[in-house]
């Protein structure tokens, strides 16, 4: 039930006053965005149309306090489909800006820069799909330096910058390098014997969280884990770290599989393309050194392709086949 006494007719104007929020007025509530939304495919409680509608009629308190406004990953899959050309993720951002102003905090972590290490190289500012990072003057050890700074309202926690920063100056809770390494090696998996005689090739799979549609699917894949398979999930395949891939290969994995979203389905705009680009270059490096490009592979899991991961893993294992070892 909507009580008119709880409506704030000024809210529409408030959102529209924030850059990006101007177009809220034009929403017809047609629902095309909801039908397209990539997040909604995984979490039906998220409905961008409804959020825009509620904001438009002034349900200020309900909108600002809701958990949904933080769920949009600003992938912009809906933007080109909207008949009114509303940049929905920008409207969401405007709403979140007001929420932050009102004292609500983003429920999830965002990327953090260690100013004692950052060189201001600007690798991360180019890497972030959202432009959430800028270099700003900061006094460190008595000297003014240009240090990277993350806007927590724009950061979608994809982890791409964490992988990209070449000096290890950015961290993001739950997907720090050390945490990924712990998950890779838990139970001594990394120290395991590389493809024991007559045994199965050992595969480490880095899997984008969005390529699994449901908890049940995750549970199935997790249950498959044994000495020949280790699964480590990533927020996005763009978070894949070439150094961790090489480390896995050097420490006893025969192959590394990176699983990302299908073309046009990335939740972080271009994250999956960066993942593919890294894997493609890494494969040329492995080929050029005679180690063999078959040791690393990128596969895409399209949103409608369900339960396909076991087959993709088996396929890679077959391709690795018997020990394809190289010597000096």
């Amino acid at each position: 039930m909507i009580r008119s006494s709880e409506l704030d007719p000024g809210f529409l104007q408030e959102v529209m006053a924030i850059p990006g929020g101007e177009n809220l007025l034009h929403c017809w509530s047609c629902g095309t965005c909801a039908a397209t939304c990539l997040v909604r495919r995984y979490d039906p409680s998220f409905n961008p149309r409804l959020i825009l509608r509620k904001a438009g009629i002034g349900m200020r308190q309900e909108v600002l306090s809701s958990r949904e406004i933080w769920l949009c990953s600003a992938c912009d899959a809906c933007y080109p489909r909207c008949p009114q050309e509303i940049h929905i993720s920008e409207v969401m951002r405007a709403i979140r800006t007001i929420a932050i102003r009102d004292g609500y905090a983003p429920p999830g972590p965002s990327a953090e820069v260690d100013s004692a290490l950052c060189s201001g190289c600007a690798v991360c500012t180019r890497a972030c799909p959202y432009g959430a990072i800028d270099r700003v003057p900061v006094i460190v050890d008595g000297l003014e330096r240009m240090i990277a700074q993350v806007d927590p309202n724009t950061c979608m926690a994809c982890g791409i910058c964490v992988a990209a920063c070449p000096s290890g100056s950015i961290s993001l809770e739950a997907v720090r390098n050390e945490e990924l390494l712990t998950r890779m090696s838990a139970g001594g998996w990394l120290a395991g014997q590389s493809q024991p005689e007559g045994g199965k090739p050992r595969i480490l799979a880095f899997v984008c969280q969005w390529s699994m549609r449901s908890d049940a699917e995750w549970a199935e894949v997790e249950a498959m884990q044994d000495d020949s398979l280790r699964v480590v999930n990533l927020p996005c395949s763009g978070r894949v770290d070439p150094a961790l891939v090489l480390l896995a290969l050097a420490e006893g994995a025969d192959g590394v599989l990176v699983v990302g979203c299908g073309e046009g389905e990335c939740h972080y705009k271009r994250g999956t393309y960066l993942g593919r680009g890294k894997v493609a270059l890494l494969r040329s490096v492995l080929e050029q050194t005679g180690i063999g490009m078959e040791r690393v592979r990128f596969v895409e899991l399209e949103a409608l392709q369900r339960g396909a991961l076991p087959a993709l893993i088996a396929d890679m294992a077959a391709a690795l086949g018997q020990p394809a070892r190289v010597s000096g």
Partner: peptide
């Protein structure tokens, strides 16, 4: 590996 990632990230 770090340079490779930094280069791809800026593509």
């Amino acid at each position: 590996a770090e340079l490779l990632d930094a280069i791809v990230a800026g593509m």
